[in-house]
Design a protein around this nucleic acid. Structure first.
Lengths: 107, 107
DNA sequence: TCGACACTTTACCGGATAGGAATACATTCC
DNA sequence: GGAATGTATTCCTATCCGGTAAAGTGTCGA
């Protein structure tokens, strides 16, 4: 009896997977090799499996081109499962987020 | 080499812990017994342990009164670790969140 | 067509973790 | 002081999960 939210939070629980999301957020689109290069301590297949997990959670999507596969962020899961959850707790983090925004706008 | 974010997301990964947060969000302050009553399938000690985890992650705080312990939400971790993370991915969920807000304001 | 390449899948292992039961601890009530 | 109550902790076990190595799939190039 596992729902969307469970899968999403489970997927986000792993630091490597969050790091992959960060890399994709910074650089847009990356191949498995490019991503794997960022994790020298991990076997290639490990990175690939993490990407499968992220794909299953709909946090990333993949486009195939030749023998490469280009991954990029896909916010569907965040929008559909995380956003409603966040809404419940908004009072607890929105103020902090606002401060961050203001900070970012200053020199 | 484990940071705040790791602990926070790891703690949020468990459905029972998230359910506890939900209950506290709805009802404000609850004792361990009251919370345990909401989880008939779990042993009392299990709930208590989850509360310890949530406390370690600073997602809840406890006030002691007599032999009872009153737990309530504590947004520090969300504000300090979750909000910055959210800020990075804001484009992916803010639109969805906005829609939710508008929906909530209608009859 | 053969081999190299990019990636995925499978099989397996070790460590982490959720869970229960029993025990320990702290506080109140008698 | 002693029993009862509310909670925390310890010990144990089954399960899950991330990790690797190796085999499998599909594509390109010579």
């Amino acid at each position: 009896m596992r729902n969307n939210s469970d899968d999403l939070f489970r997927t986000l629980a792993d630091p490597t997977r969050r790091r992959i999301l960060d890399l994709l957020a910074e650089r847009g689109t990356l191949t498995v090799s490019e991503l794997a290069a960022e994790f020298p301590d991990l076997a290639y297949s490990g990175v690939s499996k993490h990407l499968m997990g992220l794909r299953a959670a709909r946090l990333v999507s993949a486009r195939r081109k030749g023998r490469q596969r280009f991954y990029r962020l896909d916010g569907r899961a965040m929008a559909e499962a995380l956003a409603p959850w966040l809404a419940k707790y908004e009072p607890y983090w929105s103020a902090a987020l606002e401060r961050l925004r203001n900070l970012a706008e200053e020199p």
